[in-house]
C-alpha cells in the first residue's frame, strides 16, 4: 500500500527549539524512507521564515531533483497587490511546471489582513480550478477564519488541519459535514476511535493521512491509521488514494 503524507515540511530554523526540526530536504527523505512514507505534500518552512519566493523556489528545486513521483510541493501564496508571488491566473501553470500540487496561506506570519479584498480573487481561482488549499491552524489561520473562508467559498478544495493538542471534533466535524470538498488532515486526530468515528459519519473520502513531520513523530499517525478499525479499502483511501485523487482533480493548465 502506498503511503502519502499530506503534512510534511522541512527547512532549517534559528528559533532555538532543539526539537522538531528537519533542516534539509535530504533529512526529510531519510525519515520518509525510515518510516515507510512514499511521498505526499511537502512545504518548505523557508517560505515562512526567510522569504516566500526563497522558500517556494527552494522547494521547487528539491522536488524536481528528487524524482519522486509521489512527492508534491506546497507553495505559500500572498495577496496579489504587491506582485510578490505569481498572479492568480498565472499561478496554476507555474505550479504544474514546478511539481507543486497545493498552496497554503499564512496571514499571521506574512503580515496581511485575511479578507475578501486580499484573498477573494485568488480563492475564486482556487475554488474554480479545484486547487487544494491548506488551511491549518498551525500556519496562522484560526478556526474562525477557516469557517469564514469556507462560508464564502463553499466549493473550495480545502485541506483543513487543527493543530490544537486537544481532540477537536466539535470544530472539525461541522466543516466535514457541510462542505463537500473539504478534506481533514489527520495529523492531529489523536483521540481514541477518532478515525473510526469520522469514517462512520462522513466517510473515509474526507480524510487524508498526515503526520505533521517534523513537528511530530511519523510513527504516531502511522500506527493509528494502520490499526484503525476500518475496512482495508477505507484505509487505502486514507493512506493515499484520496490525496492522489485530489491532486489529479486540480486544473493546473
Amino acid at each position: 500500500m502506498i503511503i502519502l503524507d499530506c503534512n510534511l515540511n522541512f527547512g532549517a530554523t534559528n528559533n532555538g527549539n532543539p526539537y522538531s526540526n528537519c533542516d534539509t530536504f535530504e533529512d526529510l527523505c531519510a525519515e520518509m524512507k525510515r518510516s515507510g512514507i512514499d511521498g505526499g505534500l511537502v512545504r518548505c518552512t523557508y517560505s515562512d521564515t526567510v522569504g516566500v519566493n526563497y522558500g517556494n523556489n527552494f522547494l521547487a528545486e528539491k522536488i524536481k531533483e528528487s524524482g519522486n513521483r509521489y512527492l508534491f510541493g506546497v507553495w505559500a501564496v500572498l495577496p496579489p497587490f504587491t506582485d510578490e508571488t505569481p498572479p492568480p491566473d498565472k499561478l496554476p501553470s507555474l505550479m504544474k511546471s514546478n511539481g507543486i500540487a497545493a498552496v497554503y496561506i499564512n496571514p499571521a506570519t506574512h503580515r496581511y489582513v485575511p479578507s475578501e479584498l486580499t484573498l477573494g480573487e485568488m480563492f475564486g481561482v482556487f475554488e474554480q480550478r479545484k486547487i487544494p488549499v491548506i488551511l491549518n491552524t498551525d500556519r496562522g489561520v484560526g478556526m474562525d477564519l477557516i469557517y469564514k473562508i469556507l462560508s464564502r467559498f463553499p466549493e473550495l478544495t480545502a485541506i483543513v488541519g487543527d493543530s490544537d493538542c486537544w481532540p477537536n471534533a466539535r470544530r472539525l466535524y461541522p466543516l466535514a459535514y457541510r462542505y463537500k470538498n473539504v478534506r481533514l488532515d489527520l495529523s492531529y486526530v489523536m483521540d481514541a476511535g477518532g478515525i473510526e468515528d469520522m469514517v462512520s459519519r462522513f466517510g473515509a473520502e474526507k480524510l487524508l493521512f498526515g503526520t505533521a513531520f517534523p513537528n511530530r513523530y511519523t510513527g504516531s499517525m502511522l500506527a493509528v491509521t494502520r490499526t484503525a478499525c476500518i475496512s482495508e479499502e477505507d484505509r487505502e483511501k486514507i493512506f493515499s488514494l484520496n490525496l492522489i485523487r485530489l491532486i489529479e482533480e486540480a486544473d493546473l493548465s
Binding site: P167, M190, D191, A192, Y217, G219, S220, A223, V224
Partner: peptide, 19 residues
C-alpha cells in the same frame, strides 16, 4: 501512558516504535 480516551493507545505506541 496514553491519557485514554484523549489520545489513542496507538498514538503513543507509534511514537515509541518510531523514536
Amino acid at each position: 501512558g496514553t491519557d485514554l480516551p484523549w489520545f489513542s493507545t496507538m498514538h503513543g505506541v507509534g511514537m515509541v516504535l518510531g523514536a
